[in-house]
Design a protein around this nucleic acid. Sequence first.
DNA 1: ACTTGACCTCGAGTCAACTCGAGATTGTAC
DNA 2: GTACAATCTCGAGTTGACTCGAGGTCAAGT
Lengths: 124, 124
Amino acid sequence: MTYTIGEFSRLINLSIHTLRYYELEELIAPRRLENGRRCYSENDLTWIQFIRRLKDTGMPIKEIQKYAKMRAIGDPTLEGRMELLIQHRQVLHQEIKQLEEHLENLDDKIDYYKNVIVKRQEQN
Amino acid sequence: MTYTIGEFSRLINLSIHTLRYYELEELIAPRRLENGRRCYSENDLTWIQFIRRLKDTGMPIKEIQKYAKMRAIGDPTLEGRMELLIQHRQVLHQEIKQLEEHLENLDDKIDYYKNVIVKRQEQN
DNA sequence: ACTTGACCTCGAGTCAACTCGAGATTGTAC
DNA sequence: GTACAATCTCGAGTTGACTCGAGGTCAAGT
């Protein structure tokens, strides 16, 4: 199964413009038909879904690009790619911890507001 | 205790430029001395620390600005501010959940790499 | 009196990540 | 055979959040 850019765009919910931009940034390299049009494969599909994951976890495009370049080379870069993921995992883990802390803090603040509001209502 | 912009900048580890930018964006409004210089108070200190928390949890400046404006009005906006925080709490909570899912997925991928690498070494 | 350092304003520059639009081409549908 | 929809490239514009620099003020130290 292959897809035109329009189909692919709808499928993964990224704009056509964004897809072309990702290609320019060397994140993805779809095959081309004889007439020059992009032709995305199932492989491209799983790959872009992974790119999304990386993006959603805050990895900048330049970093994803590094990964993509290694991936394009293939087997000999397995270790390198794993390394990169392990590092990213570390960062992500820290980030989650930080966010959990912030969430708690936010909860405290909300509780404080609740108290003030309740007390104010008791006054009337 | 009050601080000049330089002192304050060092204290909270934000550049002087950034502090002035935050002021321009109406996040913070330090007192001014007769000569026009900024004069930050303890109150400003706790406030900017809270701003940081909001920023670190991904709240955009425009949103923080709303909060700041309500805060400046004072008491009658308590409910509004609480609302805003509750909403943000919700978003943050979802985000953390998403990130945890991504983390798991990343772990799987790393495991997969490990396996491939081990198998490859067994071959030799 | 004069240099120095911290401060001021205001306008412009930067960076990442898109986002848009003009102008050309191409494949299908009437 | 022509309209139209989808595609192409390339260059420019946008947004958010800073970041920088020029040119000026002002108080303290020598």
